[in-house]
Design a protein around this nucleic acid. Structure first.
Lengths: 128, 128
DNA sequence: GTACATTTAATGCGTGTGCAATATCTTGGG
DNA sequence: CCCAAGATATTGCACACGCATTAAATGTAC
């Protein structure tokens, strides 16, 4: 059996994580939605697209370092495309794959939203 | 302007929080649902009911130290009641209020689910 | 005592999510 | 060449959530 003494600490850390996450995520989602019309997931996708190099923009590559399920990612990208922030393109080398490319609008939106993002983090993410 | 040097660290801490949360919450929700038919929120409600003293079981008191919105809490409690795990009772002193009481079944379900909860935390919650 | 504001919980509604099933394409074996 | 197995992305479906609204009870001012 695992040591009993660690259970309390384990739960405490989880509660702390849960509280911190919900505090920050709540404010972040509201702010991103109200000020920029973006879901947190949508912002995270844009954030990865501006950072990653061009070769790594297929759906599966996005999915690989995100927390979203395959279907949620697919729909989030569909929403972004519908609003003109990304463009999907067939991958010619492997026609099963789909490339996701940032548009000018998408880059601009991310740049604007990034300010809000940082402001909310500075305000609500505990320093330790 | 805030110091630029802190921005990177801020984002890094947020990313870390996001990753940890989703890792643990994902496994936790699956396990609680598959093995005990409980949502994470429902388990958290039960968990608070077994811990709090009798005077603090009104909806608003539950809401006070939870991350859920008022409506989400209301519906979660409704689900728990529908499955016989809690019972709602009118508060006679202030007939707007609603008391939430754990049933025998609710206590038993929590006891069982708690094992799963701890096991998942031990397995997926990073030690630091 | 009646009218208005406040508090408390429930409900209508739209939406983002995960799971399972599906569609399309690629790869490997015969 | 063809067909089964695997990989990749999308879609059907049920559901938990938040926001805004509503319903009911309490409190307050006149």
């Amino acid at each position: 059996m695992p040591p009993m003494r660690s259970e309390g600490a384990l739960i405490e850390r989880w509660r702390s994580l849960l509280t911190s996450y919900n505090e920050v995520a709540g404010h972040l989602e509201r702010a991103l939605s109200d000020e920029h019309g973006l879901t947190l997931s949508e912002f995270e996708i844009l954030d990865r697209l501006v950072a990653q190099d061009c070769e790594k923009r297929r759906m599966q590559d996005l999915a690989a370092d995100m927390y979203l399920s395959q279907s949620a990612l697919s729909r989030a990208v569909a929403r972004l495309e519908k609003h003109g922030l990304v463009a999907r393109a067939l991958c010619e080398a492997d026609r099963r794959g789909v490339f996701v490319n940032l548009t000018e609008q998408g880059l601009a939106r991310h740049t604007a939203a990034r300010r809000t993002h940082l402001a909310i983090l500075a305000e609500h993410l505990q320093p330790a």
